[in-house]
Structures are given as C-alpha cells and as structure tokens.
Amino acid sequence: MGSEALVIFFICALIMVGAGILVSNLLAPKSKNLQKEEPYECGIPTQGTAWIQFRVGYYLFAIIFLIFDVETVFIFPWAVGMKQAGLAAFIEIVIFFLVLGLGLLYAWKKKALTWE
C-alpha cells in the first residue's frame, strides 16, 4: 500500500475514540449537579481562572527546542548519505556540530538551560 493509506489510520483513530465515547454516552448514567461540575481543586472552590499569564521558563525551552529541532532535520539527510559521501560529509558535520555546540554553549552560559 502507498502512503495514501495513512488516511485509513487517521480515520481508524477517529472511529475508535468516537465509537467508544458514543457507547459510553449511551451506557453511562447522567445526573446534573452544580458541585460536580466545579473544577477540581482539592475540594475547595477555585480562586480565579487557570488561564493566566504563565511562567516564561517553560517557553524558553520550547524556543531552544525549536532551534535544535530544525537543526536535527538537517542531520537526517546527512545521516542517510553519510556513508556514500565519506570524508567530506564527516568534515562538514564536524563543522556543523561545532556551530551547534557553540549555540548550546551560548544558551548554557546565558543560563537559558537553568530552570529559575
């Protein structure tokens, strides 16, 4: 089968979850209760919404990840062609990694990798 068959797996997932939830909706009891629909916070009504401006620490890692992930995409074709291309490819990747390593070092020095 070709890669167009990917669609079938996509649909399968939808069917499986959808059917499950449908059956569950048919079988499950339903009752309305205001307290039940409160967000869970250890049994105490929550103070304010959870949708707030959140700490930057998490995003910093997301940004660094983005840089490195883009670079990993470069490594994929290189890894495949490494054996054919031989020495030239090796030297190139050493240079590439040096640059990458410098970037990591910079982030390290800037304390971007330290959770504050």
Binding site: T46, Q47, I52, Q53, F54, R55, V56
Partner: peptide, 12 residues
C-alpha cells in the same frame, strides 16, 4: 513575570 496565582493543596 507570570501572574502570581493561588492553588489549594488539600484538603483532598
């Protein structure tokens, strides 16, 4: 800075 927010840890 993120907004300071409160979480109840407990009683449950």
């Amino acid at each position: 800075e993120s907004q300071e927010y409160f979480i109840n840890m407990g009683p449950q």
